[in-house]
Simulated assay, not measured.
Amino acid sequence: MDFELSEEQEQLKSEVQRFAENEIVPVAKEYDREEKYPWEVVDEAAEMGLLAPQIPFEYGGAGYDVLDTAIIVEELFAADPGIGLCLSSTGFGTEAILEYGTEEQKEEYLEPVAKGEAISGAAISEPDTGSDVSSVSTRAEKDGDEWVINGNKMWITNGSI
């Protein structure tokens, strides 16, 4: 079995490395010191198709497969884990929309994330269970025409943005 990257994957890796060296490394310390979100880097990453790279072309994404996406994330984190996480988490949860969402939901939510016009978030961690999603106690229940959500969360990924 061949475990080497293909020529296309090597090229992708090189392109992401170049992006990271030019767009992330020079500003990473500044963003850390100032504790600010790297909107400018997000915009540049969107131009390169690096936000939620697994989103298919028909929904405005780059259409990368799992291994390509892993290469992208690895190279972003190698440059700076803080900015790497900001970029790789913009599409946090889009996989669920791709797998289980309606066509209307896919059209409404996926393209803005891929283009950097929207950022998804996730509320998983709870005081008693951490991030063990199989043990969360928060529940959503239908009450007439509305959904009522009951529970507590500790952190919400991208909640502040």
Rank of each mutant, 00 (worst) to 15 (best):
V148E: 15
M48E: 09
E75F: 06
K36P: 01
D143H: 13
L85A: 05
W147P: 00
S125G: 03
P81S: 07
L12G: 08
E74D: 03
E23K: 05
E103G: 14
W155F: 05
Q9N: 05
D68T: 07
E103A: 12
D132F: 03
G116D: 07
E108C: 11
Y64S: 00
N150D: 15
E104K: 14
G151S: 14
A123F: 12
V148C: 11
V136I: 14
G93D: 07
V136E: 00
T157H: 02
P26R: 04
T129C: 08
I71R: 00
G116V: 05
I24K: 01
K106Q: 13
V133L: 10
I71K: 00
E23R: 04
L50V: 02
E58Q: 09
V136H: 06
A118I: 05
P53E: 05
I72M: 02
E47G: 10
E146G: 13
E75Q: 01
E58S: 12
E74C: 02
D43L: 04
Q11F: 00
R139N: 10
I97C: 07
Q11K: 14
L12A: 11
R139D: 13
I83K: 06
D145Q: 14
R18V: 08
E8Q: 09
E35I: 07
Q17T: 08
I72D: 04
V42S: 03
G130P: 06
L76W: 04
S160K: 11
I149T: 14
L51P: 00
A122P: 00
L76Y: 05
R139H: 13
